[in-house]
Design a protein around this nucleic acid. Structure first.
Lengths: 260, 260
DNA sequence: CTCGCTCTGTTCACTAGGCGACAGTTGCGG
DNA sequence: CCGCAACTGTCGCCTAGTGAACAGAGCGAG
């Protein structure tokens, strides 16, 4: 199973009625990508909004020196590039596929047409963006205010909850490389490893190859609460998390980022 | 003049037709706040969406130890608390007024009603949120990847552009205390001061009491470009920045944050 | 004019976190 | 079942950034 790392709670497709969904799919153009294939570059031509139909997409910002920042790994039902629909903005991220991936591309006119016919789509897009904004502000707060071990713990907690679909407090596996986490937090891998070690020493997590095991979500949650500098605001309950539970890629994932 | 610090390019009211705007104002309840008055706390009851009619509002997160993170200072036409309209989420920030301020509060049912009658409002809200998300992602990238002097320079640059309404490259004044900038970037005031000093040594800015003077926006821009680690993506042109240009508060601003 | 408050400039000892390097480990592909 | 490539663990050195503290400077109020 590939965990959609820091996947946002709500995507465009979530809570969309069947007719609107069908209309949306009919309005765009399908694209297929294979594992690791590059889709677009930051600043490139405006391709329109993209919706993930199956598979996953890494959203990242690649620096001039070749290093990369990871923003999110989006799964089915999630959209990106909305910004290109407004004010003729350029794409803001580099994107590449994780596993075999199918995408739906909607140009500005595609979108205008289908959104006009189905106002529900605008609603869903708004809802998704409001939730994403909320998530991002929380992350921003964390990064500015909390010591890194706490930021890391919160991140793992969020992902653990996501994997269990918000459910119980039992043990959870999170499939992710330490390098990806480091790219996400913007710290060096070496440092991340040390920090993970601290959490492991506390018995909150176990680390293994490309995987992090959380033996008890509740314990992790308690520890985070104790070390949180400000009041915790529960993110809105994801009314329906539409990630297909089955694994989309098997085994090891090929390098999605070009060598540096 | 009070600069709306890091104000987002597009607010709800921007690009809204007169009839929709009137309907919106008619649909909500007006509230008046005086300088420094506290509006709401993070995690408190869901009050609905709020639109700034006049004056400014500081959005922040106050930590348990009394320290605060600044997220934005919103001006006329900008909205917040949208998240409380969806999934019954709680407020995510503490908010207080800067100068005499008039607000419009829309409960969930207020919003549903007026949004139903004027779909244009949903559009505008979506547009605003998409742009904010973009801004925030950029900020997140900066904070994770760039050395602090560059982050600071970019921040000043953005504000300088905002003050001149995106116009020329001449000299600009930015009215802001160093403490606010520090709270925004999440660094100590002492360190911020040192960093500002570096920019001043380069001749890019002059600092004075509660004010930063940028002698040449172009020069600042060039320096930022040179020191940027990744490609620059221009934020979408703010089609109409609706901030009232006249100063809403005169002279010194009272403490908006409770003593600590 | 002068008091008092807020804001700025600066110092110093201390800690978090970065960077490069390298050795050990896992697991896929052949 | 072997070899290679992708990962992980760890060390040592170095800079960025902290927190507390305090003196000076700007500005509003009486």
């Amino acid at each position: 199973m590939v965990s959609s790392f820091n996947s946002y709670p709500t995507g465009l497709m979530d809570g969309l009625g069947a007719s609107a969904r069908d209309a949306l799919v009919a309005a765009g153009t399908r694209i297929r990508l294979s594992n690791g294939q590059f889709l677009q570059s930051r600043g490139a031509d405006k391709a329109g909004m993209v919706v993930v139909l199956s598979g996953h997409v890494r959203m990242m910002t690649i620096a001039r020196d070749g290093s990369a920042l990871l923003l999110a790994i989006l799964g089915p039902g999630q959209q990106f590039n909305e910004v290109t629909l407004f004010a003729g903005a350029a794409q803001t991220h580099d994107a590449s596929a994780v596993g075999d991936t199918e995408l739906l591309v909607l140009t500005e006119s595609d979108y205008e047409r289908v959104a006009g016919a189905h106002p529900e789509i605008v609603q869903a897009l708004l809802r998704s963006n409001v939730h994403r904004l909320h998530q991002l502000v929380e992350l921003l707060n964390d990064l500015r205010a909390l010591p890194k071990p706490v930021v890391l713990a919160r991140l793992l907690l969020k992902n653990a909850r996501h994997v269990t679909r918000g459910g119980g407090a039992g043990p959870v596996e999170i499939d992710i490389s330490q390098e990806d986490i480091a790219m996400f937090l913007g710290v060096s891998r070496a440092y991340l490893n040390k920090t993970l070690g601290q959490l492991a020493d506390l018995g909150l997590v176990d680390v293994s190859y490309r995987r992090i095991h959380v033996p008890d979500i509740g314990a992790l949650e308690d520890w985070v609460q104790e070390n949180l500098a400000y009041e915790s605001v529960e993110s809105p309950a994801p009314d329906a998390c539409s990630d297909t539970p089955g694994g989309t890629t098997q085994g090891r994932r090929d390098r999605a980022v070009p060598e540096r």
